[in-house]
Every structure is written in C-alpha cells, then in structure tokens.
C-alpha cells in the first residue's frame, strides 16, 4: 500500500517538474530591439550604424534597423542567439557580431539595446516596463 502511494506521489512530482520544464521551454518572449543611445552606469553608448539583425537564425525586419529605431521579435524559450551585421550604404561593414543571451521565464517583454551589446556591456538586456 505504501509502495503504491510512493509511486503515485513520485509520478505527481515528475509531472510537476515536466510542467515547469514545459513552462520555461515554451514561454514566449517579445524582444524589443533598440538601436538607440543608452546610458548605463554613467557610460553612454551611442548608436552609430544601422544593423541587419537575426535572432535564432531568423532575420528581424526586412531591412537594416536604422539609428534611433526600434523593431521587435517574438521568441520562445530561455536561450537565444543574436547576430548583428553593420550596414553602410546598403553594404555590410566589418565582422558579424554573434552573442548568446538568456531571458528569464518571468519576463514576457524585454528590451535589447544594440549599442550596449556592440560595446560589450553585459547590461544590454533589460526587462520592459
């Protein structure tokens, strides 16, 4: 009898863990991608170039994100990869920047600041209000 109850309780625990896992893996996030000036800890990162952006291999927007503009992308799950390619006169300039980042399951909307990311700041991602 005890064994039966232990198995049942174990099964319930496994299902709860599976539920939490599915919640994290399936959680949708909206990423607002800003190509705007930002000041973090007194340091200002200025937007200087337009960028073509890919998140998890999918291009964001049809064309490059101009200085001072915002775009958005919807993703699911906690881990993502962003790729940036600077564009000048409709031609790619310099190396592609690739960055992995994680989004907390608690945040539905986040803001990703490109100038901060390009400058190497760890605070390029922040929760949207």
């Amino acid at each position: 009898m005890l064994k039966k109850w232990v198995i049942r309780c174990g099964l319930v625990v496994v299902l709860i863990i599976l539920g939490v896992f599915l919640y994290i893996v399936g959680k949708e996030h909206v990423i607002f991608i800003d190509n705007k000036d930002i000041t973090i800890d007194g340091v200002t990162h200025s937007a200087t170039a337009a960028y073509e952006i890919w998140i998890d291999g999918k291009q964001v927007g049809r064309s490059a994100l101009a200085v001072g503009k915002r775009n958005s992308a919807s993703v699911a799950g906690p881990s993502h990869v962003i790729e940036l390619q600077a564009i000048q006169d409709k031609e790619p300039v310099g190396e592609k920047i690739v960055k992995e980042f994680r989004i907390s399951a608690r945040d539905y909307q986040v803001i990703l600041n490109i100038p901060a990311l390009v400058a190497g700041s760890d605070l390029f991602l922040s929760a949207a209000e």
Binding site: G19, L22, Y23, G26, K27, E28
Partner: peptide, 18 residues
C-alpha cells in the same frame, strides 16, 4: 497557457498536463 504566453508544442503538452 494563453495567459502565460506558452507557445508551440510545449504549450499544447502543458495544456494537456494542466
């Protein structure tokens, strides 16, 4: 699951679980 913004196959399976 719509309220929690869970999408894709994990959303379907989580809905079944709930």
């Amino acid at each position: 699951i719509t309220d929690w913004h869970i999408v894709g196959v994990p959303g379907v399976v989580l809905a079944m679980l709930i």
